[in-house]
Amino acid sequence: MKALTILLIFLSSLSLTAQKVLQYNLKTDDTFRVEQQAKQHITQDINGVDQIINNHLKSVMQFKVVKVEQDVIVLEMTFQHLKMTMSSPELGELLNADTANEDDADLTSKMFKGTLNIPVTMIMERTGKIQSISGGEELIASMFKAANIIDGATIEANKAQFEKQFGSEALSNSFEQMTYFLPAKAVTINDTWENVYQGDLRAKNKWTLSTYTEDAYTVSGNADVTMSNIDENVTMVLTGTQKTTINANSKTGLFKEITVEGIYIGDTQVNAQNMTIPTEITSTITYKILN
């Protein structure tokens, strides 16, 4: 009896410490929808007076698996809904753009409508690292078309700004924030690994496998972050930290819900006025599988 008890304890300990391979296991024609919500609270000290801006972005994206290979998964993404609001306690509502808006006079909403149902192709490694994205150029062209902007000079003057949000490289960097959190090696509970996000939000992430069952697992992450937005008019560089919590499906590797909380502090340089504005941003971003 004593020997049996020891054996059971031994087998139980093996189960607890067994290594897990965390990766995406999706099949061709799998589809899922993701709702993203991003809230930013921006405080800028302008000559000793705080100016506050609140941004809220909501989007719904549909993903379809079009091909599965040994090392990569090819997905097609389309936007199904996009809404952005910007407001200030002092200045009131500054922007309210929504693809559900029926007002044809709202130029920003019309441009957002141009993003709907335009396919973007994503090639993703099984860790969630994105090798490439194509379709960003078509997305931006559709935005200009939806707003009936056909003048070549106007398009060229504004294209670079749209590429920072909707270009293929920008989309790749953005999507990695909801896909790229899996390790390249087998891990056990409490093991850690690292990766880096590139782009305007550059983050060095340290991940930990917190829990694991046959059906679900959780990953927690902490990151040191540099947020930058640099153009000929404004230079903003902020540094800070992010804390991420991920609940995911053990069978598919796909997240169920992600929460990212961050705080970033630095300066905004307005070049034309030679003005330096202390800036602080707190943000909460959530991603949720809708089906």
Rank of each mutant, 00 (worst) to 15 (best):
K243Y: 13
W193M: 04
A248C: 09
G221V: 11
A153N: 09
D231H: 04
P183C: 15
A157C: 07
T252E: 06
K204D: 14
L201H: 09
M178Y: 12
L238Y: 01
A223E: 10
A203K: 02
T244A: 11
N158P: 03
E232I: 05
T179H: 05
Q177K: 14
N249V: 01
T154Y: 06
T179R: 01
A147K: 07
T245P: 00
I149Y: 04
E194R: 12
T235F: 08
T208E: 13
A170Q: 08
G240A: 01
F144Q: 03
G240H: 04
M236V: 12
L201D: 07
Y197P: 00
V237R: 03
V237F: 06
N148L: 11
I149R: 04
L171K: 00
T192E: 13
N249L: 06
F181H: 09
M178G: 03
K164Y: 03
K204W: 06
G199V: 06
S168V: 04
N173H: 11
S220H: 14
G240C: 04
Q198I: 04
T213F: 03
K159T: 05
D191Y: 07
L171I: 15
V196K: 15
F162H: 06
K206D: 04
L238C: 08
T239Q: 13
N247V: 00
Q177P: 06
T235H: 12
G240M: 09
K243V: 13
T213W: 03
S142L: 02
T213V: 05
W193L: 09
K185G: 05
N195F: 11
N249A: 05
V196G: 04
Q161C: 01
T211C: 13
K185P: 08
Q242W: 09
L238N: 02
I149N: 03
V237P: 00
N233K: 12
N233F: 05
S250L: 11
S228L: 00
A248P: 10
I189R: 15
Y180Q: 12
V234S: 10
A216V: 10
S168F: 02
M178D: 08
S142M: 00
T188K: 14
T241K: 14
E232D: 15
V225M: 04
V187N: 00
I246H: 07
V196Q: 13
K251S: 14
N173T: 01
N247F: 01
T211F: 11
K206S: 09
K145Q: 11
S174Y: 10
E176L: 05
N173Y: 11
G221M: 13
E156W: 03
I230K: 09
E163K: 08
L209F: 01
G152F: 03
I246S: 03
K185E: 15
I230D: 09
K145D: 13
F144N: 03
K243E: 13
